[in-house]
Design a protein around this nucleic acid. Structure first.
Lengths: 348, 348
DNA sequence: AGAGAGAATGTGATCGATAACATTACCTAC
DNA sequence: GTAGGTAATGTTATCGATCACATTCTCTCT
C-alpha cells in the first residue's frame, strides 16, 4: 500500500509513515524546502511555509531523527553510561542529566555498566562512532568505562574525585566530597566525641576515596587518633556487617558513613548491640537520600546535589559539542550538612 | 584529511571514522560482502571472512547503528517512557527493562514524563516514526502517554491495572496488586485487628486503584467495618500528613500503606503520637523497597517483583517486534508478603 | 561437453534526511 | 534598458548501511 494512492485504503495499515518527500509532493514543493521549513534555518516565503506546515499537520509527518543525524544534522542525542542505578547517587545524577538533556531537545540513551563487565564492548554500545556520551563514574566500573572510551567520542563525566595527577580534566565535574567529609567530622568532634570512626564506600580508583581522605584530614588537623577506616560496600547489609563487632566497644561514640545506606545498616547494628542513638552513639550519613529524613531516628547526613551535578554535566557536554552558542553550564549546590536526630553530644 | 591517505597524518584528527566502504576497499571486496560478514546472515567463504574481520579490527571499524536502522535493518532500539524515576517501582522496572534490552543487544532510550506534561509532544520524543516503545504506566502521566502514542508505534507497557472494560490488552502486563493488598489485609485481620485502615497512593486512572480495591475486598469478605481510604501521595511526607490526625484514635490499630514511602511517614507520625509499633499499632507497606528491611522497626511489606516485570515487558516487546523467533517471555514473581517487625497482634 | 544447481560475490536502488551548489524571479540603481 | 544583488526555491551528491537482484565461478550429472 503506497502513500501515493489517491484512494485511501480503509484501515489498511500504512506500510510506513510519511517522509519528507511525501510532504513535499503534497505541498507541491521540493523536499529541500520542506527541510528548510522544519529547521527554520534558511528563509522561506510566508505563503510556502504556511502551506508546508499545514501539509505536515495533515499527514502527521514527524522527522526521522535517525536520518537527520545520518545526514549530518546537528547532534541531538546522548548516551549515558552509568553503573548500578539502584544506588541513590547514580540514580539522582541520571535524573539530572536526563532532565537537562530532554529540556535541551536531546534524546537520551542509557546503558548500565555491570560491575564486572569488560571494557572491550563499551564502544559497541554507542549508536554510532562519535556519539556524545556522559559517564557517571562514581565507582570502579564507571571509571573503567570512561577510560575505555575511544578518543573520538565527545564525553563529559560526573566523577568521584578530581584527578590526582596532572591538570584537571575540563570535561569532568565532581562534588567536593573531601571537604564535606571533613566538615561532618569536625561537626562530630565539636560535639565532644574523642574521635570519629568511618565506614567507607568502595573507591572508584586505587587511591583513597575522597570521603575517607576528608575524614582523615579533619582528624589529623584536630590531632585525634585516626582509626582504620572500616571497609564497607554500598548496601545497608555491608554497613551492618562492618560495624557489628566494633559496637561492643563503648568508647566508639561517633560513626561517619560513606553513604546513607551504610548508615542504615550501622543503625540497625547499634540497635541490636543495645546502643542508643544519639544518646550513646552518633551516626552521620552521606548523600541525604530520600528516606533519611524519616528514619528512626532521622539521619544526620551530608546533602549532595546529584541532580544539579547531572544537569551541569550535560551543560558541559553541550558546550563541548557546540562551543559557539551553548548556554552557560548551570551551577550546582555545594555539599551541606543536614543535622537531624541521629547525632548528638558525646556521652559523659 | 581523508581516510584514503597512504601516509597517515600524525595525530591529526581523522575527519570521521571508518565506514563499511573503507573496510571493503582495504579488504578488496565489495561493501555488501562486508555487510554479510558483519551480520553473519549469508554465507561468505572462510578466507574472505577472515580477511574482512582482520581489516575491521585494524581499522577499528564499528557499524553505525543509525545507518543500519535507516536502511531497514532489524529494529534494535527501544525507548522507555517513564514517570518519575525517583519512585522505587518505576526505577526498578526501568532497571529490569534496561537489563533485558541490553542483554538482547538493544540500545535503550529513556524519556521521563513530567507529571503535568501535555501529551501532544509524546510522539516527538521518538527517534523515528515506528520506534519501539515501552511505557511504565503506574501513574496518571504514564497512562496518558500510553494513550497518546500514535497507533503505528509497537509498544508494550507495565501498568498498574488490567483494563476494566473490554478484553485484556495482550501487550500490557501488571502485578496482581489487588490480590496482594487483600492478602496483606487478611494477614492483619488474622492478628486480631478489628479493621485495617488504608493510606492510598494516587490512582493511575479515575477508577479506584487496585491496591485500594484489594484492601476493600478483604474487609468486605471478613464483614469488617470499611473506613474511608486516606488519600496519600507518593512521598513519606504525604503519608505523615494523611494519618497525623487519625492516630489520636487508639482504636486504629492497623494501617496498610500504598507504598513503603507512605509507611515511612506513617511510622514517623506514630512515633510523634506516642504510638508503639508494633505493640500499639501495626504498619504494613507495599513494594519492599531496599531500605525496608533496615528500618526501625523493620517494615512488614509486600514484595513486588518490579525488575521481573520490566524484563517481562521487554520480552513481550521482543515478541511483538519479531513473533517468529522471539525467546519466551520471562516469568516474574508473584507478590509476596514479607513479615518483619512493624506488624504484630492487636493490642489487648 | 553442455546444462543446471549452488555457493560466493558484486551492482544499483533505497532508507529519510542535510549540504553544497545551481537556478529562477524580482527589485533596484545607473 | 540592462547589470547586479538578493530572496526563494530546485537539483544533485552524500551520510552508512541494507535489500533485491545480477553475475561469476565451480561442481556435478547426464
Amino acid at each position: 500500500m503506497e502513500v501515493t494512492g489517491h484512494m485511501p485504503a480503509q484501515d489498511a495499515p500504512r506500510t510506513r509513515s510519511a517522509s519528507i518527500w511525501d510532504v513535499a509532493r503534497v505541498a507541491g514543493v521540493s523536499q529541500q524546502t520542506v527541510s528548510r521549513v522544519i529547521n527554520g534555518k534558511a528563509r522561506v516565503s510566508e505563503t510556502t511555509r504556511a502551506r508546508v506546515l499545514q501539509v505536515i499537520a495533515e499527514l502527521g509527518y514527524r522527522p526521522n531523527r535517525l536520518a537527520q543525524a545520518l545526514a549530518g544534522g546537528p547532534v541531538r542525542s546522548v548516551t549515558v553510561l552509568t553503573s548500578d542505578t539502584a544506588l541513590y547517587g547514580a540514580a539522582a545524577t541520571l535524573r539530572g542529566m536526563e532532565e537537562a538533556a530532554r529540556t535541551a531537545g536531546f534524546s537520551v540513551g542509557i546503558s548500565v555498566l555491570e560491575r564486572d563487565s569488560g571494557q572491550a564492548d563499551i564502544a559497541l554500545r554507542l549508536n554510532r562512532p562519535g556519539e556524545a556520551v556522559m559517564v557517571i563514574a562514581f565507582d570502579d566500573a564507571g571509571v573503567r568505562a570512561l577510560r575505555a572510551l575511544p578518543a573520538d567520542v565527545p564525553v563529559t563525566a560526573a566523577v568521584e574525585r578530581r584527578p590526582d595527577d596532572g591538570p584537571d580534566d575540563p570535561w569532568q565535574i565532581w562534588l567536593d566530597d573531601r571537604a564535606a567529609a571533613a566538615h561532618a567530622t569536625r561537626y562530630l568532634l565539636s560535639l565532644g566525641h574523642q574521635t570519629v570512626h568511618y565506614v567507607a564506600i568502595p573507591s572508584s580508583t586505587s587511591a583513597l576515596p575522597q570521603r575517607t581522605q576528608g575524614w582523615q584530614d579533619a582528624l589529623r588537623a584536630a590531632g585525634r587518633p585516626l582509626p582504620e577506616p572500616l571497609p564497607g560496600g554500598w548496601s545497608p547489609r555491608s554497613g551492618y556487617l562492618a560495624v557489628r563487632s566494633l559496637l561492643a566497644d563503648r568508647s566508639v561514640t561517633a560513626i561517619l558513613c560513606g553513604n546513607d545506606d551504610l548508615a542504615l545498616g550501622v543503625m540497625r547494628a547499634a540497635r541490636e548491640a543495645g546502643r542508643d542513638i544519639p544518646g550513646d552513639l552518633s551516626v552521620v550519613g552521606f548523600d541525604d537520600s530520600p528516606p533519611s529524613a524519616y528514619l528512626n531516628p532521622a539521619l544526620t547526613t551530608v546533602r549532595l546535589d546529584f541532580e544539579g551535578l547531572g544537569r551541569a554535566c550535560f551543560g558541559l557536554l553541550n558546550r563541548r559539542l557546540d562551543p559557539q552558542n551553548a548556554a552557560a553550564v548551570p551551577a550546582w549546590s555545594e555539599p551541606e550538612l543536614i543535622v537531624r536526630e541521629s547525632s548528638g553530644p558525646a556521652p559523659a
